[in-house]
């Protein structure tokens, strides 16, 4: 089936097998391998992309279902050599270790901040509850978001040194 969609601001028109997942389509047909496959069945969140404004597990969406939609992936974050604000906050706060969960984690945070620019700690935790991180223990990820969105009491504080 022929599908047309926008990914990170660029239009694509491709022929796509009807049983292909959006995740495989993005990685293998479009060559955008920043989005990861962990479990392939909705558990880990490594495949999170933003589909028409909402974070979804791309491993459970068919590419043909996304016909006509607008998608953001991790490749749309950095502009040239400069990181996006979310990426920079992750780096500053040591929220990236092996990095496998990071593309999905950043997409979940991006959706959260689009709707809730000053999230509470519990809103942040809820937004990333579907993103497994086996390295950081999550603390640094929550701190990265709080750092970015401004947590007054945390100003100037040194963490995880």
């Amino acid at each position: 089936m022929k599908i047309k969609l926008t990914v990170n601001g660029l239009g694509y028109e491709r022929d796509c097998a009807e049983h292909r997942t959006l995740l495989r389509f993005i990685r293998e047909d479009l060559g955008l391998t920043g989005t990861k496959e962990g479990c392939g069945m909705g558990e880990c969140g490594a495949c999170t992309v933003i589909l028409d404004g909402r974070a979804v597990n791309a491993c459970m969406v068919l590419a043909v279902e996304a016909d006509g939609s607008v998608i953001s992936t991790i490749e749309g974050e950095a502009k040239g050599q400069s990181l996006s604000d979310i990426q920079a906050a992750f780096e500053r706060n040591h929220a990236v270790q092996c990095g496998f969960c990071t593309p999905g984690m950043v997409m979940s945070v991006k959706e959260l901040l689009a709707h809730d620019p000053k999230p509470t700690e519990s809103a942040i935790k809820e937004a990333v509850e579907g993103n497994f991180c086996r390295c950081t223990g999550y603390t640094q990820i929550v701190e990265a978001v709080l750092d970015l969105t401004g947590r007054p009491e945390a100003k100037g504080e040194l963490r995880h040194v």
């Binding site: 974070a55 597990n57 509850e129 579907g130």
Partner: peptide
């Protein structure tokens, strides 16, 4: 029910 991403779908 499930996680935020799953609830979106």
């Amino acid at each position: 029910l499930a996680s935020h991403q799953v609830r979106n779908r």
